[in-house]
Nucleic acid binder design. Sequence first.
DNA 1: AAATAATTTAACCAATCAGTTAAATTGAAA
DNA 2: TTTCAATTTAACTGATTGGTTAAATTATTT
Lengths: 210, 210
Amino acid sequence: MVDDKQDTEKLILEAARKVFIRKGLDGARMQEIADEAGINKALLHYYFRSKEKLFEIISSKEISLLFPTISGAILSEDVPFESKIRLIVDGYINLFLKHPFLPLFILREINRDPDNIKGIFEKSGVDFGFIHNIAFAKLAEMLNVDTDGARHFMVNLLSLCIFPFAAKPLLEKVLFNDDEQEFVLFLEERKIQVADFIICAIKFKQFGNS
Amino acid sequence: MVDDKQDTEKLILEAARKVFIRKGLDGARMQEIADEAGINKALLHYYFRSKEKLFEIISSKEISLLFPTISGAILSEDVPFESKIRLIVDGYINLFLKHPFLPLFILREINRDPDNIKGIFEKSGVDFGFIHNIAFAKLAEMLNVDTDGARHFMVNLLSLCIFPFAAKPLLEKVLFNDDEQEFVLFLEERKIQVADFIICAIKFKQFGNS
DNA sequence: AAATAATTTAACCAATCAGTTAAATTGAAA
DNA sequence: TTTCAATTTAACTGATTGGTTAAATTATTT
């Protein structure tokens, strides 16, 4: 046997991740996951009882990937806000370059079962009360805007980082004639472009209004 | 009979739209569409032969909704670029306020069948050659950036308009404690916030660099 | 060697679902 | 009234799919 002993479990989890991420819960087939893992359906159910159980495991793991990036930047204390923005944008775009199908997967999950996502967030240590009461107030102070302005800022940042990956197949076609390499370069560029874009918008609002 | 004669077809199309838009092709059930339309499955197949045919009709119509907004703004000649931006942002956010599930539907379709979307765009009169060779050059000139800068600008604009709707259920929870009304107000505000954001970013890049 | 766990094979079950069919019913038009 | 299209009812087919089962096989451990 080529593979080591019982990391069959890991094999299955990796296969399930690939299939679920690309096709979602509805679109995924247990047979396809078994094939991807190079095993058979019986063994798949031998390790993980049901599709739903397996999906729960995968989706929790994937959704949990989102937090370290943003919480890491927010918790860093002695860093000027420009650098924080660059940190977050870099973190997310790098994350999605490694996991290109994660954005759409998350968006599908958000709409399929919003409560589940909130639960996973909380299990990952995300404190919604804190975000609501403290984090946004702090962010608002930092940006010199009101709470609502902080919300728009946050949504803008997430939009700019996440959307291009969710819309990748179309943007690739329209902007780069289906040349994936060029599109990946474009996404790499965005680490700087997006951060600049956000920083410029903030600065102009603060200082300039000719 | 309450309904007029044979606008049963319209009834079915509207029901199919609702179901497909919320659940996608995989998640939708023909029985559910029939129920939503207040008819039975036999009649549904009597009007539209297959699920795929019906889906094709719906998805074409929905995807076609995206164009008037942006092409209208681009084709308007005597309008300063700031106003064009406001026109596009207003147009899209209004469109999505009316069709809240459209963004996620489009994103799903983009990833499910990218070629199909391109085809639908072309059938709607969108000329990819023109976009590639002329529109982006013109846009770049207007913004005083290179072609690549124009691409980033376009992607930024689309990101800021589309993403918040695709992520609505989660943002609503996290930012507004599940208060939908407040979230809709937030989205209304974004018509101005996003346009300002984009315009500020452009202006600061052009004029300011303290 | 014996016992135990991992894996395969292959058939099977039950549920779901798209799509069909045929007969009956209703309603409008001729 | 006859005709014909629209609609319902209800049963059915066939394919897919999640999940099970039992027996055989292979590998590991004791």
